[in-house]
Every structure is written in C-alpha cells, then in structure tokens.
Computed example of a mutant assay.
Amino acid sequence: MSPSTSSDASERPGTDRRALLAAAVTVLLWASAFVSIRASADHFAPGALALGRLLTGSVALVVLLAVRRGGVPPRQAWPGILGSGVLWFGVYMVVLNWGEQLVDAGTAAMVVNIGPVLIALLGGWFLEEGFPPLLLAGMAVSFAGAVIVGFSTAGSGASPVLGLLLCLLAAVAYASGVVLQKPALRYATPTQVTTYGCLTGTVACLPFGGQLLSDLARAPLTATLNVVYLGLFPTALAFTTWAYALSRTTAGKMGATTYAVPAVVILISWLALDEVPGGLTLLGGAVCLGGVAVSRLRGPLRPAPPDA
C-alpha cells in the first residue's frame, strides 16, 4: 500500500482506533524514557547520551527497514525528514538532556509541555489543519494539568535561567520537528520517515562521539543498558508508532496526546522507583488525561463539498 493510499484510508471510520493504539504505545514508551534518562544522567553527558540513544535506534531501524524492504524515501519526503531529523532527533534530545541537568524535572516538564501548544498553532497555520474548538479546549485543560504537575514536583531551589531556556528550546525543536515530519508522511512510509530521521539526528550528533566513548569507558553496565533501552524502545519503536499515528491524524491531535506523558511518568515512577506521588500530583495527572480525552473527541461533522 502506498503512503498516499494509507493516508486516504485514515479518513475512513474505524481506522483511527489503530492510530490511538499506536499513540498509546508512544506515550507509554516516552514516559518510561524519563526513568531511564534519570538512571543514566549521572554517567553520560547530554550530547553523549543523545548520540548513544540515536546510534542504537538507528541500527534497529535500519535492520527493520531492510527486513521490510522499505527502500529509500522519494525526493518529496526529504525536506521534512531532514528538518525533523536535525531538530527533533538531534537538537531536542541534546538540549532536553542538558536542560534537565540544570532544572528540576517538574519545571522541565512544565516548560517542555509548551510543545503541544506550539504544534497546534504551527499545524493550524502551516499545515492548514485549522483550530478545532475541542482540540483547543482539550489542550488548555491538559496544559493546566501539566502546570499542576510541574508545581507539585518542583524543587524549592531557584531554577537557572539557562536551564529554562534550554527546555524552551527543546519545546520549540519538538514542535517544529513534528510539523516538518507531517508532510513527509504524505510521500514516505512511517518506517522510512523514522529511520532516515533518526539517521539524520545521529549524523548531527556525531561531534559528541569522543565524549560518548569516554563516558562508555567509565559508565556502569546498568547505565549503558539504559542507553540501549532508550535507543530500542523510546526511540526506534516509539518514534515509529508516533509516525504511524501521525500519518492517520492531525499534528495538533497527536501533540495533544503527548500531554498524557506526565501522568504516565508519575505512575511508572511510583511502580519502578517507589516514588509515591502527592495528592496534587495525582490531580494534575488526572487533569492531563482528561484534557487528552477532550482533544480526541470528534466535533460536528462538516458537510462534504459539492464535488466530493
């Protein structure tokens, strides 16, 4: 099936369920990444951690693409692949790792969660997706939940300005990467877009190769295994399921779905790290999930154009 055929099929009733399932896998794996990053942050510099994650993900994705005989994307897809590869796979991962070394996790999550708002705005303008009222309402609710989570988990110390600016840059890079990736999916398959985007990000991060080798020589096995996990699952698998879901829905709706990540992070930290969340944190997580549910609701159907 060609990418265009797949895109057309996404408009038919019932196929959105597969997009929702793919989005749920993405949210779960991206949430788990926070725990793995935290376990590796003391042993890997931000650029080295990003490069190790991308190298692992690239190897897995190239093998998958070869097995599926995916081939090379058509020329029309390359601007979006290269743009999203540099900004999302490259810049985003490095500056987010760096920012989280300077500010607490709650503050970082609150700033990075500007990303879905930017996706909705950029998608509405540049991708002509419009501004559906239910999407905007759901994003407002989820953003309020993210703010609650951020304040409930923020440390008492002052956050360095540089850390806040880095998290803001991560949000901009994330949103820009998503909006650039969406048009590429009209011409290439999700696996192609993800594989070559990850390879592009890997090339962009090669200057950190020396630091990665140095960190690998000193890091304990558990930290190295966390980097491998980040590459295989939150990168190779989760970015592929993301691209699949994005090819079957709008960038705005996909961005709103990621508001569920903080709520899932709370649950994983509770189960894996025995970090019992407070009542305010649980409330914020519930509000995030409620906003995602509102954003995914279908509004009134628009009448078909006369020539449809």
Results as ranks from 00 to 15, higher is better:
Pro3Met: 04
Ser4Trp: 01
Ser4Pro: 00
Ala9Cys: 00
Glu11Pro: 00
Thr15Tyr: 15
Ala19Ile: 01
Leu21Tyr: 15
Val25Arg: 12
Val25Asp: 15
Thr26Gln: 14
Leu28Gln: 11
Ser32Glu: 13
Ser32Asp: 13
Phe34Ala: 03
Val35Met: 14
Ser36Thr: 14
Arg38Cys: 01
Arg38Asn: 11
Phe44Gln: 01
Ala45Met: 13
Leu49Ser: 14
Val59His: 07
Leu64Val: 10
Gly70Ser: 13
Gly70Arg: 02
Pro73Leu: 03
Pro74Phe: 09
Gln76Lys: 15
Met93Asp: 09
Val103Met: 02
Ala105Cys: 01
Gly106Thr: 05
Thr107Gly: 02
Met110Ile: 07
Ile114Asp: 07
Leu118Val: 03
Ala120Arg: 04
Pro132His: 09
Pro133Phe: 10
Ala137Asp: 00
Met139Asn: 14
Ser142Tyr: 06
Val149Cys: 09
Val149Ile: 14
Phe151Ile: 11
Ala158Trp: 10
Ala158Lys: 09
Ser159Val: 00
Pro160Trp: 14
Leu164Asp: 12
Cys167Glu: 15
Ala171Met: 12
Ala184Phe: 12
Tyr187Asn: 06
Pro190Leu: 05
Val193Glu: 04
Thr194Met: 10
Tyr196Asp: 11
Leu199Lys: 01
Thr200Cys: 09
Thr200Met: 04
Gly209Asp: 00
Gly209Met: 10
Gly209Arg: 00
Leu212His: 04
Leu216Gln: 09
Arg218Asp: 08
Pro220Cys: 08
Pro220Val: 01
Leu221Met: 08
Tyr229Phe: 14
Tyr229Arg: 05
Ala238Glu: 11
Leu246Pro: 06
Arg248Leu: 13
Ala251Pro: 11
Met254Ser: 11
Thr257Gly: 12
Glu275Val: 06
Leu280Arg: 10
Leu282Asn: 05
Ala286Val: 10
Ala286Lys: 06
Gly291Cys: 01
Val294Glu: 02
Ser295Cys: 00
Gly299Leu: 07
Pro303Phe: 06
Ala304Tyr: 02
Ala304Gly: 04
